[in-house]
Amino acid sequence: MNITTGELAQRMGDAESTAPGSTDDGCRLIVRRASEIEKKPVEWLWQSRIELGSLNLIGGDAGSKKSLLSCALAAAVTTGAAWPGDLNGRPPADTLFLPAEDDLSKAVAPRLAAAGADLERVHIVEATEIEKRTLACMLPRDAARLGRLIRQTDAKLCIIDPIKSYVDADTDSNRNEKVRNDLHPLVKVAADTNCAICLISHLNKACTTQPSALYRLAGSLAYVEVARTVSIVVADKDVPGRSVWVPVKINHAARPDALAFSVQTTDDGLPVVLWDKNPVPIDADEALAPKSKKASSVTDEAMEWLESELESGPMSAADVFKKGKEVSFSEPVLRHAYTRLGGKAVPIREAGKISGWEWSLPRRTS
Rank of each mutant, 00 (worst) to 15 (best):
S173H: 13
I150A: 08
N2K: 07
R349H: 10
D161R: 07
P99G: 14
G324N: 07
T208F: 13
D238I: 05
C207F: 12
S297G: 11
V125D: 13
S312P: 04
R364L: 15
R228W: 09
D238A: 06
G219N: 10
L199G: 08
N278H: 10
T128F: 00
P84V: 06
A127I: 00
L157N: 08
E16K: 11
A235W: 04
P314Y: 06
I159D: 09
I282M: 05
K353D: 09
E301S: 13
I124V: 14
A206R: 14
G313M: 12
P271C: 08
G13L: 12
V179W: 05
A15W: 14
H202L: 10
V108L: 02
L149S: 06
L112M: 06
D94C: 10
D192P: 12
G219H: 12
P247Y: 15
G343C: 03
F329V: 01
R145G: 03
R175E: 13
A127S: 14
A218T: 03
A136M: 07
A317Y: 11
D267F: 01
I197H: 11
G343Y: 02
T78A: 04
A74W: 00
S212V: 06
A100E: 03
K66D: 08
W44M: 00
L310F: 08
R151I: 09
S173M: 12
G63C: 07
V272D: 05
L361H: 10
V273F: 04
A115P: 02
K323H: 04
H123T: 15
D86F: 02
L57I: 03
I159Y: 07
T4W: 12
Y215R: 07
L73G: 00
D236I: 09
S366R: 11
A100N: 02
S296M: 12
R145N: 07
